[in-house]
Design a binder for these strands. Structure first.
Lengths: 109, 109
DNA sequence: GGCACTATTCTGCATTGCGTAGTACTGTGC
DNA sequence: GCACAGTACTACGCAATGCAGAATAGTGCC
């Protein structure tokens, strides 16, 4: 557990959170992330994140060969992913709280 | 205004916030950041951030030649820095809100 | 005076995550 | 067949963070 993830690895957390809601394939995750407010997220970043997460053993993956387009590669959380999500969420929350503290003294009213 | 800063540039904001409280030199900023809860922040990162911010015209800098050690290079916010802080703080806040929204559906209870 | 230690700054270099751009494949509509 | 949209993926680059180490300026000890 190193601090660099704290500062940069927010996308991982976002992807995990989105997948926790329900399984999704890359293109879909991108769309959901953008709808959630992360409008500037690049698709390649998401694919990369998905792959990293999968490689880290946090995701399951199954291909659905739709008849109306190319196959969709769905991803879903497994136990590792779920606990990673919990941990990361906690880390994020406390990090965000720290930042908000720092900012509180700045923003008067 | 690009999103990459959203995801990565948190340290900039933290440094700006700390400096808004009162001027400080690098070594001191590191200490204050750590005391504030950002324990894993590396000194080189802070020096780098300081330099980048200064180069971007957000900071003033003056050297205080202390008699009890090497000179201290103080940094402080100027108008550019203050408005950068405001902007970044707003961006951060809304980003954090988005993330919290995303996480709300995950963390039951 | 020299040595170790602390405070302080600064400079590589490596890692890594995010983004842009471009490729490839599959189905639909013309 | 061709253009277009949905979908996945790769290659490369940039920027930020971290680690390690050097340099500089004092203090204290011998």
């Amino acid at each position: 557990m190193d601090g660099s993830q704290l500062l940069k690895g927010v996308l991982d957390l976002a992807v995990l959170a989105v997948l926790a809601e329900r399984d999704g394939y890359g293109y879909d995750v991108v769309r959901r992330l953008r709808e959630a407010g992360l409008e500037d997220v690049g698709d390649a970043s998401v694919y990369g994140t998905l792959r990293r997460l999968y490689k880290a053993g946090a995701l399951t993956s199954y291909v659905v060969a739709s008849e109306e387009g190319p196959h969709r590669k769905y991803y879903g959380l497994n136990d590792v992913g779920r606990s990673l999500l919990q941990t990361s969420a906690k880390t994020w929350t406390s990090f965000a709280a720290t930042m908000n503290d720092l900012l509180k003294e700045v923003d008067p009213g």
